[in-house]
Amino acid sequence: MVHVVTFQAETRTGAGPASRLAINVMAPPAHAQGLASREEMVRAMLRTAADGGVGVVATRPFSDMERLLGQCWPFPSPFRVTVRTVSAAEGLDRVEARARRSLERMGLPRGEAIMVSSATDLAGAEGRALWDRLERLRDMGLFRRIGVCARVEDGPELLARRFRPDLVELPCNLLDQRAAVSGLIEGLAGHGISVQLRSIFAGGVLFAPREDLPAHLVRAGSGVSRARRSLAESRADPMQAALAYGMMLPGVETVSVGVPSAAELRAVLAAAHAPAPDLDWAALALNDPATLGAAGSSAVSSAA
């Protein structure tokens, strides 16, 4: 049975770099046998996150992860929790019902933010009606903020002017710096919109050998190799450099990272607290960063 989580009155915002991490707890691997084993793995990740001062847990309405989180929250929980919508193609009633169900499955009386999972849902004919539904959920006290998960290609500035979200999530990393160099992040922040970064590890590309790059990134192989060589010559750890880059950008509130295990989360926490390396950040960007757009996962070991 899912227990109701009591939240502390104050979060750890401002307590350190970890408070600016939004972790997406990934499903335990297939080799984890039995419900008890899977729950213990999730509990270990949440304990590690709580002890490390992580501020936000980001969730998605897939698999049974929400139910597992509901079984495993530390008590009292220090986390602010964000929830993603299902596709608007499933119907507005389904979007609203599933958002409510997400909170129920996690045993939460309310969430920090409800995130539109794709900006294209707002660009369609039902965009305004969808936003009205989400505003109603916010006004009822089920969520404190409303956000949008967008790409640079979606024209987030126009969406922000039309809907005035509280939060926009964008991809940005060492290899794809478009959201930063274009002024998009600072522009959104200047209008009072919080910005969360995703894909901070560039789909795991910074950690994978060139021969293991997916097909859509083969043409970017030389640029990836150049960036990795530059990091190596500077004796900079790729994970530390990636997190330092995201966290130093003006206007960035949080950085989203997928974590499949407590051990990998500990590595992320250590990297987040490490001193920022002295690098020529602009020189690390790919000439054609849009090629990274096909990398969809956010796990540390693959596409975080």
Score class of each variant (00 low, 15 high):
Ala58Pro: 02
Gly296His: 11
Cys172Trp: 05
Ala295His: 04
Ile185Asn: 07
Glu169Leu: 11
Glu135Gly: 13
Glu112Lys: 00
Gly204Trp: 09
Asp278Thr: 14
Val42Pro: 07
Val168Ala: 04
Ala274Thr: 07
Pro275Gln: 05
Val148Gly: 01
Leu217Ser: 00
Ala267Gln: 14
Thr48Asn: 01
Leu158Gly: 15
Glu104Val: 12
Phe201Glu: 00
Ser117His: 15
Glu153Ser: 15
Arg151Ile: 01
Glu104Asp: 14
Pro61Lys: 11
Glu233Gln: 14
Gln177Glu: 07
Arg235Asp: 14
Asp176Trp: 02
Val218Lys: 15
Ala202Gly: 02
Arg235His: 15
Phe163Val: 09
Ala304Val: 05
Leu188Met: 08
His273Leu: 07
Phe79Thr: 08
Thr11Glu: 04
Pro74Arg: 11
Arg219His: 12
His216Ser: 12
Ser298Leu: 13
Gly190Ile: 12
Ala129Tyr: 01
Leu122Cys: 07
Gly187Arg: 12
Arg100Trp: 03
Glu104Tyr: 04
Thr59Asn: 10
Gly204Pro: 10
Trp73Met: 07
Leu167Tyr: 10
Pro109His: 07
Ser230Ile: 09
Leu142Lys: 07
Arg84Asp: 10
Ala202Val: 05
Ala36Glu: 15
Ser301Phe: 02
Asp154Cys: 09
Val300Pro: 00
Arg20Leu: 04
Glu40Gln: 15
Pro275Val: 00
Gln33Tyr: 10
His191Ile: 01
Leu292Gly: 06
Thr291Asn: 05
Gln8Thr: 09
Phe201Thr: 10
Ser261Thr: 15
Arg105Gly: 02
Asn287Glu: 15
Asp176Met: 02
Gly251Pro: 11
Ala220Val: 08
Arg94Phe: 13
Ala263Met: 04
Val252His: 02
Arg136Asn: 10
Leu35Ala: 14
Thr11Lys: 05
Leu217Met: 14
Gly55Asn: 06
Ala123Cys: 03
Met26Val: 04
Leu159Pro: 01
Val116Ser: 02
Tyr245Gly: 00
